[in-house]
């Protein structure tokens, strides 16, 4: 389609300019933070930094990466991502598979489905959840960050819809050849749903990396906080009570602002690194659950 009329060409240029500006506006704040994190304390405190570092240096990063609590919380996050993603994915698989069966073959499917749906529609609220986590004795342990959200019902729905769209004949053939449910799931369904699983897996990694509120309320002591919860207390609440005296002294030498910026950037870095992959599978992910029989 070509626009030959003059107003149309003017519109095209204006439109492109507007959208370009909008796109730039979305990422400029992040670039600004990055520039501040590499600038000298003097320039940052005086508010001189725009989108390029002034007096480039890496002191803030050196400080952050040598601080005990930051590294400790990073380890907790890595542990949480590792265990959490494995648990979420396994449960998604073994829950989506039975629910993808027809209700004529698997009569109780409807009951199970409603059992899951109710958890989306209604929740007890934050205080009762807190008490249950306490009663089950996982408060303060890594399991407090994993078990309460261990069954991602939305992902189960995405995957079961994907399973339902696989050709029925494959499954029938497997059963006739003597395969049981387990081998059908892991040797036929799983290999066929790798793109769907990749999408769900990536989103699960992002969710675990980004989660901060559960860490804040379920981990009793700050040295067990995952990274995002730790950053929440340092950057947002400005609670420095858990820092060592040594850290506080060094912090006075470097600017508070550049250190915060460095921490913000490091907290976002893994997501930025995953972003190309997220983007690739993203549209697949949106349309995944939308195809119905």
């Amino acid at each position: 389609m070509h626009y030959t009329t003059r107003p149309m060409r003017v519109f095209q240029w204006f439109n492109a300019f507007l959208l370009g500006l909008l796109a730039l506006l979305c990422v400029l704040p992040i670039i600004h933070i990055l520039a501040v994190s590499f600038s000298s304390s003097a320039a940052a405190t005086a508010g001189l930094v725009r989108f390029w570092p002034i007096d480039f240096n890496v002191k803030s990063y050196e400080f952050v990466l040598s601080s005990g609590l930051f590294l400790k919380s990073l380890l907790v996050t890595l542990e949480r991502v590792g265990i959490g993603v494995a648990v979420n994915m396994l449960l998604t698989l073994i829950t989506a598979y039975p629910l993808s069966k027809d209700s004529e073959r698997f009569k109780q499917r409807t009951i199970y489905t409603w059992f899951m749906l109710v958890t989306i529609l209604f929740s007890g609220g934050i205080v009762p959840l807190f008490m249950i986590v306490r009663e089950t004795g996982i408060m303060g342990s890594i399991w407090a960050l994993i078990l309460p959200g261990a069954v991602p019902v939305f992902n189960v729905i995405l995957l079961l819809n994907f399973f339902r769209n696989l050709p029925k004949e494959l499954e029938e053939a497997a059963f006739i050849d003597g395969a049981g449910h387990m081998s059908t799931l892991f040797r036929i369904f799983v290999p066929l749903s790798l793109p769907a699983l990749a999408t769900i897996g990536l989103l699960t990694v992002v969710n675990h990396w980004n989660a901060w509120f559960d860490g804040l309320i379920f981990m009793n002591s700050p040295d067990r906080y995952p990274l995002q919860s730790y950053l929440q207390t340092i950057i947002i609440q400005r609670d420095y009570s858990n820092m060592t005296e040594q850290d506080l002294k060094t912090m006075q030498l470097i600017s508070d602002r550049t250190i915060k910026s460095a921490q913000i950037f490091l907290g976002a870095l893994p997501i930025l690194l995953l972003y190309p992959f997220l983007q690739k599978y993203f549209v697949t992910g949106i349309t995944l659950g939308s195809v119905k029989e």
């Binding site: 933070i33 992002v206 950057i235």
Partner: peptide, 10 residues
């Protein structure tokens, strides 16, 4: 894809 902690800090 960024958390509200990160965006809030920014």
């Amino acid at each position: 894809f960024l958390s509200w902690v990160i965006l809030g800090g920014i």
